[in-house]
Amino acid sequence: MDLRIFTEPQQGASYDTLLAVAKATEDLGFDAFFRSDHYLHMGSVDGLPGPTDAWITLAGLARETKRIRLGTLMTAGTFRLPGVLAIQVAGVDQMSGGRVELGLGAGWFEEEHKAYGIPFPKEKFARLEEQLAIVTGLWATEVGQTFSHHGTYYDLTDSPALPKPAQAKVPVLIGGHGASRTPRLAAQYADEFNMPFGSIEDSERQFGRVRAAAEEAGRKGDDLIYSNALVVCAGKDDAEVARRAAAIGREVDDLKANGLAGSPAEIVDKIGRYTEVGAQRLYLQILDLDDLDHLELLSSQVQSQLS
């Protein structure tokens, strides 16, 4: 089971804070550092010092880390034109020596679009399908050839399709709870399917849908990696769990029911139940980015039992 650290910087984090978490992620043996792609805080927090751009941040971290994978859950398709996104991700992949992964979604948080003057189209999912075709098509075009796409929302003519990522194939992640369109899109474009904040039962059901869609599309169901993203709140004892839950404004019972919370033994047990329904990778959502002791506990008491 791969354990990856997943952060939500829009809730309040500077680049220096993210750098500290990324370095701890690497030093403590986790597989990857991922971040959300949002420009506006959610809930009652003030979001200070303000948002950081996902791909600018990852570019910096690419030069400051050596081993861990780097990526997004999920880049919002509404934020960037697909040709520009392909250039950005390829550049960061080169800067990292080939350690980047692209999670791409349709975009959903209308308030952040209003706050920063970003168009929020109605046909987001149809646009996402074209975006995936364009980004992956640009990367797959051989050097010296050109790429064209004439779709409903985007029109590219004779693009040189440069630059190329350092990797021969940048892994593409698609996720979500949708029962039909999401599995179909994952089957067509994804290297990994991510189930965000889903129960064990919902994850099993959705993984099954994606496997079926992959087979219908002519792929093997096992061609994809299946993963979950879950909030985590661990503690050596009940008091430490309660303290960490209070720090992120959550109730312990809610975290235990809908995430990974409790003692290391409780968390390992629940991870095992996700493994039983097909999860191969977990993105541990860390909401208190100043609590690096939390990462150390997860490394020494949880990750050590899963290797």
Rank of each mutant, 00 (worst) to 15 (best):
R181S: 14
S44G: 11
L73D: 02
A214K: 01
D46H: 09
A242F: 10
L138G: 08
F193H: 01
T141A: 03
I5C: 05
A32F: 00
S300M: 13
E204I: 06
R63T: 11
D53E: 15
E110I: 14
S203R: 05
H294Q: 05
A265V: 06
R273C: 10
D158Y: 04
Y153Q: 11
P119C: 05
I267H: 04
Y226H: 02
A76H: 14
G97P: 00
S36I: 14
F125K: 15
L287P: 12
Q145M: 08
R63H: 07
A126R: 15
T17N: 10
K236Q: 15
E8R: 12
P51D: 12
A106L: 11
S227P: 00
D37H: 13
L230F: 07
V92Q: 07
A32M: 00
S36K: 12
G91C: 07
D27C: 03
V170S: 00
D253I: 10
L102S: 05
G249E: 11
G29R: 06
A126G: 15
L224I: 00
Q94C: 01
L185K: 04
A279G: 02
Q301K: 08
R211T: 04
D2G: 04
Q94V: 03
L58Y: 06
V252N: 12
A24Y: 04
Q11S: 15
P183N: 08
Y283K: 10
S227M: 03
M74H: 14
R209N: 13
Y154F: 13
D238N: 11
L260M: 06
V21N: 03
A265P: 11
D253L: 07
R281D: 05
D93F: 00
G47C: 08
L298V: 00
A246N: 09
H38F: 06
V170Q: 03
R281V: 05
I174C: 05
L295Y: 01
T7L: 11
I56H: 05
R69P: 00
D290P: 07
T65H: 02
R250E: 14
D31R: 10
V92L: 06
D269E: 15
T65S: 00
V45L: 13
D223L: 01
D222W: 01
E8G: 12
G117T: 04
A24G: 03
I225N: 03
R4L: 14
R67E: 07
V45Q: 06
D2R: 08
E26H: 01
Q285P: 14
D237H: 11
T146L: 02
V89H: 01
F6Q: 10
E240N: 08
R127Q: 14
P163G: 03
R281C: 04
R184W: 13
G221C: 05
I174W: 08
T52F: 14
K164I: 04
T25R: 01
W139E: 00
G50N: 02
E251M: 11
L173S: 02
F193Q: 02
L40K: 10
Q280R: 05
A168H: 08
D16A: 15
N258D: 12
E192W: 08
A186R: 05
P82Q: 09
F120M: 10
V241Y: 06
T57K: 07
K169M: 04
P165M: 04
Y15R: 08
T75M: 12
N258Y: 15
A213M: 04
R244T: 12
L128A: 09
L104V: 02
A242Q: 11
T17C: 14
Y274S: 02
D191E: 01
E130A: 10
V232A: 05
G208R: 03
S227L: 03
D253K: 09
A213D: 11
E110T: 10
D223A: 01
T25Q: 00
